[in-house]
Design a protein around this nucleic acid. Sequence first.
RNA 1: GGAGAGGUGGCCGAGUGGUUUAAGGCGAUGGUCUUGAAAACCAUUGUACGGUUCUCCGUACCGCAGGUUCGAAUCCUGUCCUCUCCGCCA
Length: 471
Amino acid sequence: MLDIALIREKPDWVKEQIGKLYDEAALARIDKIVELDGQRREIRTRTETAQAARNSLNRSMGKLRGNKEMDDGEKAARAHAAANALQHQDFDRARALMDGSAPVKRDDSLQPRPAFDDLIAALKQIGSKIDDGFARAKEIESELEDNMLWIPNLPHHSVPVFESEESNKAHPPRGKFREFEFEPKPHWELGPALGIIDFERGVKLAGSRFFVLKGWGARLQRALISFFLDSARAKGFDEVYVPYLVYGDMLYGAAQFPKFQDTVYQLEGEDRFLVPTAEVAITNLHRDEILEEADLPLSYVAHSPCFRSEKASAGRDVRGIKRVHQFEKVEMFKFTTPETSYDVLETMTGYAEDICAGLEIPFRRLEIVSGDLGFSATKKYDIEMWSPGCGEWLEVSSCSNTEAFQARRARVRYYPAGSRKTQFVHTLNGSGLATPRVMIAIMENNQRADGSVVIPQVLRPYLGADVISAS
RNA sequence: GGAGAGGUGGCCGAGUGGUUUAAGGCGAUGGUCUUGAAAACCAUUGUACGGUUCUCCGUACCGCAGGUUCGAAUCCUGUCCUCUCCGCCA
């Protein structure tokens, strides 16, 4: 979520930034937001002033009723006089009469009961306008919130402004491209031939875009996960194990909802969802907390399965395990101060690249342009591995700075050193890495003419094998 | 799944309709004292929004959402969560 104050103070600048994202729908909401914000403040100010008067009159009423220094006759006279003052909107006099600070003429014909009934009736009249005001403010606030939730994060000034992913800027590839003395096969041929991927039985169990890994395939995935986790741990990330089912609020907190609601699986009849990434859980780990600057940065790494309905990409990437409903990913995540977050984005992206380099697979970094940033990132890098079998670059990591966009939604704040004024932290996430595509890259890059696959050096201790071949 | 108990500030915990400030304690911070520390004593002590502006003022928040009332932490309804016991279970 953006800071409402920013939209209020610089609406035109915000529109210009959203223009860079080519998000017309969001752009159209800005004027509405400014208008609602103005209405909201006007009503709040007016209603809260009235509420202040009511609160203080009610307190005075209680004070009068419980006053032990006055007898019933004086109380009755004061209640009667205060009710009169209220009829004339003279709140100060009414208060003074009830407090006992203003003199009152005794009238012993007055009974306390009817006098207090009059006073209560007078107080009651003040109330109804206030209730209406708060009800209206609530309506406006909920409409305002609704609009705010659909506004994407704004691009960092260093992000190239282009409309689509075709303009993403590729850095020079790193690693050695292999010269094949035969035609490299795609993984959807290699996997079944080696007996390590079983597409048919995956489909039998759960439908299209599900698969089964068998034998060395299953073990390779497990080896990769361990290697990824250890790599991140070596860089100072704390390993955490998180729930794979979370409340809807967590998905709002991580800025997946409301925009990507239909990409996530929900448990029937429950407010619980299968995580599309461990990022959702980690973002909310410190939800509603106020951290100290000395605690930052907080670095977490978690492995989790990721569940995605992939409705929007029906028909794309249907062959193999490039795009599936369930995959394994190791996610790096950092909570930082605003001053350091862009440096951290660079180093974290570097960590993801180090892992690729360690696996000795050719890879490249992509600098994502404004139009392809997605909803919550201000700046993003993708890492892609080359896959000679399918002949394409496969995204294996995505590293983003979201600044305070998620932190504001999940209410993760900190006290800057020496200050008691809270500030939102910045959050960054980066895959390190996702398994199915890394397995594709390993199989396709390291295949031999006989269909066997050579295992990268760093994985051998984890896997306990140098080569996978058909048994 | 069944039964019961409970959710109050950073933490513990009192508070069954008002008498302007959620008691008290712990912790934290500042100060006094001290060569220094401890102890003792004194003071301060949340978040958000709004109005004013650099200082205050106001409103809201006692799990959450409604309701009753002139007035709700307190009464009513719903809901979520936690704990204990039973059942089931890797």
